[in-house]
Design a binder for these strands. Sequence first.
RNA 1: GCCCCGGUAGCUCAGUAGGAUAGAGCAACGGCCUUCUAAGCCGUGGGUCAGGGGUUCGAAUCCUCUCCGGGGCGCCA
Length: 596
Amino acid sequence: MGAFPDCPEPMKQQLAQLLSTAVATLQADGALPADLSVEIQLERTRDRKHGDFASNLAMMLCKAARSKPRDLAERLLAALPASDIVIRVEIAGPGFINFFLAPSAYHALLQQVLADGEKFGRSDIGAGKSVQVEFVSANPTGPLHVGHGRGAAYGATVADLLEAVGHKVHREYYVNDAGRQMNILAASVYLRYLDLCGETLTFPSNGYKGDYVWDIGASLHRKHGEALRHSTDEVFRDVTADEPQGGDKEAHIDDLIERIRTLLGETHYREVFDLGLNAILENIRRDLEEFGVHYDAWFSERSLTEGGAVERALERLKASGHVYEKNGALWFRSTDFGDEKDRVIVRDNGQTTYFASDIAYHMNKLERGYDRVIDIWGADHHGYVPRVKAALTALGDDADKLDVLLVQFAILYRGGERMQMSTRSGEFVTLRELRHEVGNDAARFFYVLRKCEQHMDFDLDLAKSQSNENPIYYIQYAHARVASVFRQLQDKGFSWNPENGAKHLDRLSESHEDELIVMLSRYPEIVEAAALNHEPHQLAHYLRELANAFHTYYNAHQFLVDDNDLRDARLNLIQATRQVIANGLGLLGVSAPDSM
RNA sequence: GCCCCGGUAGCUCAGUAGGAUAGAGCAACGGCCUUCUAAGCCGUGGGUCAGGGGUUCGAAUCCUCUCCGGGGCGCCA
């Protein structure tokens, strides 16, 4: 443990070490095949009658040993080296090896929590490996809505967890600042501007209808007055009819974009475009920042095109021989790599597709030398995974370095009715509204309470009306209660002597105390599992259990007792509890208040 | 049609790379505040783990089929 030379190996690792020594001994004796590679499995027991940790090792190896599980367990037990932290080992059931830990092991752990403080639970098992995590990356065509919130909370927490276990994490937002959607936004802004100039027009059915588009149109008007105004007749001349008028909504908006572009000229058009882009991007940035979601980089899609990266990616693909021309377009033969069909990378009109940019982007990510690259996408993009991996493989890159984590939708209900989440129609609940309604803490916690592949039903009315019953308050309350106890210390004429407490931890003999200490000792294992499996919900659930153990203890026993030794020992315990809750909530981006 | 995710208590969900008698919250019911914050605690009831078949010492967990729900299958991004 290079980063923390003072802290002993976690209990679990120590026990695993004992078992592997025993296995090696049996292998030397010929009781087990020498070439057998053994993976030690140890797990927390569900019932303390079975000790603290259990291993199914004997049952796993009984075939290789040509022996009954219980017999093998006996031999393993005999070969087990002595250890300070183990008080007893038993064989139980079909052949489980159950470890009972010494109280001193738990007492040492308690002191370690106090000594490590906010570092407790962190580790360096990530060994400094670099990981890039890209998440949210919503198109800057409108404010973030509650659907994006899940990706934001999940991505931020996964990133923080990975950092906590020793990875070097780079958080990135991919800004889709090129492409058709942004042009539609620019056109929408311009049309709202014309409206404010006094023009009468029918807004395209495919335009962005949200109120924020009016706002951007208004700031365009403030800046330029009527200088950019063109008559409705001029703008809509020769434009394909919109769908409600019996035409084609896609052609209608595309024609409008071209028309507006021509009328404004490239400079002014770009100005309108950038005004929309920057206004929305700034809004998104602030929103995420307020949500406790921070980025190291905002990566522009346009920079890929302008910097020649797309061109370079296409050249490399061509050189790989997996590209062909058909119907005037350029295709990538992704079927060579298991994709279900080939994909266009340059359209017949000469424009590169979004996919082409994405190939260039992922090429760029790998060129930056990360050990791992994690993309967090909405589940609706799942079909996209094979083609991106196919492209990386075709480029000669290691596609296995890329992990795509798919986050299922949060389905929003209000008044029992399902709500649509369409940026285009302007009908959506923004992330900001949600944060204001239920608070940042509750929102962050709620989003990571379920594993990412689980669909999420989110009843807004319920979240609002029951905000006091949200589990987050239960956890925060436990933290506040500890703080409150310490505030009461002086009022009662006591003081806390942690050194004295450390000397009398054996006074913590109540079953509630025992259970709480065991819960605390699990924390490093939980952080590790949550990080490596990208499952923040494990930490969220753990914290609830920890809070439960604390509340139960709180109700059963008085901490501020007259007995100095017992009082100090109990204060050590609850201070450690407070520390672990604060650390865990911190990793989830949730505050740990001292009073509520 | 093909692909991805899900189906566990009335509701919302956990179940740790198969492990010992299936858990929690909410909802329901019954208790606990002259004592460190009752946003709390204690207790009760509630389940053919969607269904069939298979794999093995052992399956909610792995394989397979069926049924149900959500999403995806563009020269859109």
